[in-house]
C-alpha cells in the first residue's frame, strides 16, 4: 500500500504540477490582484488593499457598455437558439430519409474557426464603396432601407452579432436535443397514440417533460457560453471593440489586461470576478428551478 501510494502520486505528478501552476495558483492570485489598489505592472508595486478596483470597474463607462451588450446578447441568443434548435430537432426526429445528411450538415459550424467564418458574415453584411453587401440588397429587394451592419448604428451591429452567435451555437444544441429526443422510450408514444392523443398533446405531455432536463442543461450552458462571448465579436468588428461600442464583459477583461488600454491586471481581475459571480448566480438559480420542477 505504501509503495502503491507513492507510485500513484508519481503518476499524478505532471497533472498536479500543471494544474497547480496554471489553475489553482491563478485562482488564488486573481482574488489578490482584485484587491491590490494601484498595482503597477512594470514595478510590481501597489499602495494597499481595498475594493477600489471593483468601484472603478463598476463606474467605468466601457464596462457598463460591455455589460449591456452582454446582457442583450444573452437575452436574445439563448431563447432564440434554444427554441429554434428544439424545432429543428423535432423536425429531424420526425423524418427518416436524409436525416443523417441533415444532421451532419447542421453540425458543420461547430468545427469551423469562428474568426475565419466571422469574416464571411462580415462581408455579407458590410457596406463598401462598390456594393451594399448581399444582405442589404436583399433588404432593399423586400422594400426596406439599407443600413451599415458593421460600422452603423448599435442595434444593427447587435443584430449581426446575434445572428452570428446563433449560427455558431446551433450545432451543439441540435445535436444534444436530437439525441435526447431519440432516447425517449417509444412505448410512451405508442400508448398515447392508442389513446388517440393529438400531436400537440403528445408533445406537451410526453416529449417536453421527458427532455426537460436536457433543455435545462442547454439553457445553463447557453447562458454561460453567451456571457463569455468574445471572439465572435472580434471576428465581426475587429480587436478594438470599445471603439466599435460592441465590447463584451470578457473582451473588457482582456482589453484591461493587454492591448491598447491594457496593463491593468487589477481591473481585469475585478471585472473577471464580477463576471464569475454573475455566471455562478445564474447557474445556481437555474439548478434550483430545475430541481424544483422535478
Amino acid at each position: 500500500m505504501e509503495q502503491n501510494n507513492r507510485k500513484a502520486w508519481l503518476y499524478l505528478l505532471p497533472a498536479l504540477a500543471f494544474l497547480g501552476v496554471f489553475m489553482i495558483y491563478p485562482l488564488v492570485d486573481v482574488v489578490i490582484y482584485s484587491v491590490e489598489e494601484g498595482y503597477n505592472s512594470a514595478s510590481q508595486t501597489f499602495f494597499g488593499y481595498g475594493f477600489y478596483n471593483f468601484d472603478f470597474v463598476l463606474h467605468d463607462a466601457y464596462f457598463l457598455q460591455a455589460v449591456r451588450n452582454t446582457l442583450v446578447l444573452v437575452a436574445i441568443t439563448v431563447p432564440v437558439s434554444t427554441g429554434l434548435s428544439l424545432l429543428i430537432a423535432l423536425g429531424l426526429s420526425s423524418i427518416k430519409p436524409l436525416r443523417n445528411l441533415f444532421q451532419t450538415v447542421y453540425f458543420l459550424p461547430y468545427v469551423t474557426n469562428t474568426l475565419a467564418v466571422g469574416l464571411v458574415f462580415m462581408i455579407l453584411f458590410k457596406q463598401t464603396e462598390y456594393s451594399q453587401g448581399l444582405i442589404n440588397l436583399l433588404i432593399q429587394a423586400f422594400g426596406g432601407s439599407a443600413v451599415d451592419f458593421i460600422n452603423g448604428p448599435w442595434w444593427a451591429k447587435m443584430t449581426v452579432t446575434c445572428i452570428y452567435t446563433v449560427w455558431i451555437v446551433m450545432p451543439f444544441k441540435i445535436l444534444i436535443l436530437t439525441s435526447a429526443l431519440a432516447s425517449v422510450n417509444q412505448d410512451y408514444y405508442n400508448a398515447a397514440r392508442m389513446d388517440g392523443a393529438s400531436k400537440s398533446r403528445i408533445f406537451f405531455k410526453i416529449t417536453l417533460p421527458m427532455i426537460m432536463p436536457i433543455v435545462f442543461y442547454l439553457i445553463i450552458t447557453g447562458f454561460i457560453g453567451a456571457f463569455k462571448a468574445y471572439s465572435d465579436e472580434v471576428a465581426l468588428f475587429g480587436t478594438d471593440l470599445n471603439a466599435a461600442g460592441m465590447n463584451t464583459m470578457v473582451g473588457y477583461v482582456y482589453d484591461m489586461l493587454y492591448g491598447n488600454g491594457g496593463g491593468f491586471p487589477s481591473y481585469a481581475a475585478a471585472a473577471a470576478l464580477i463576471l464569475f459571480a454573475i455566471i455562478l448566480t445564474i447557474t445556481v438559480i437555474n439548478l434550483l428551478v430545475s430541481r424544483g420542477r422535478r
Binding site: 494544474l19 496554471f22 489553475m23 489553482i24 495558483y25 485562482l27 477583461v253 489586461l257 493587454y258 491586471p265
Partner: peptide, 20 residues
C-alpha cells in the same frame, strides 16, 4: 477537487497566467 475545477472559467485564471 479535480472535478470541481471544471467549473472554473478560463477568463478567471488567464490574468495570472499572462503575468506568469
Amino acid at each position: 477537487l479535480f472535478l470541481s475545477l471544471m467549473m472554473i472559467p478560463n477568463e478567471l485564471v488567464i490574468i495570472t497566467n499572462f503575468q506568469t
